[in-house]
């Protein structure tokens, strides 16, 4: 069952979300961009990833928290070591899941 009001909310939200997702991709890929802008855009992934990682590790429940409540802050240490050593995305993700499961088991 779908309520009309909720249907309209979801539809409206989806439309206003599509604009920032699509507009730069379609418009900027048609334009010649200055070299400096392209270089700046090339650094956006590093900038975004460090922000997303910091939020995922320091505020996993949406607010800042520390160990022992926040186990992500402990698990990230071996995970970063695995990433640097293996340079493998899959190994790091599998290792991270295993480390977190182990930590939860140990902490009861």
């Amino acid at each position: 069952m779908m309520r009309t009001q909720v249907f309209l909310i979801i539809l409206g939200a989806a439309i206003v979300t599509l604009i920032p997702r699509i507009a730069p991709l379609v418009l900027l890929s048609r334009m010649a961009l200055p070299g400096r802008v392209v270089r700046w855009l090339g650094l956006v992934p590093v900038a975004v990833l460090s922000s997303l990682l910091a939020q995922a590790v320091a505020m996993p429940e949406g607010r800042l928290s520390l160990p022992p409540e926040n186990l992500a802050m402990v698990a990230i240490i071996p995970v970063l070591l695995i990433a640097v050593r293996t340079k493998s995305l899959i190994m790091t993700v599998a290792g991270g899941v295993a480390v977190m499961a182990l930590l939860r088991w140990v902490m009861g």
């Binding site: 990833l49 990682l53 790091t92 930590l103």
Partner: peptide, 17 residues
């Protein structure tokens, strides 16, 4: 531990970047 998969993914991708 699957809820930690995305954090681990961001870490690996950041190192690779």
């Amino acid at each position: 531990g699957f809820d930690f998969a995305l954090a681990a993914m961001f870490a690996a991708l950041l190192i690779l970047q």
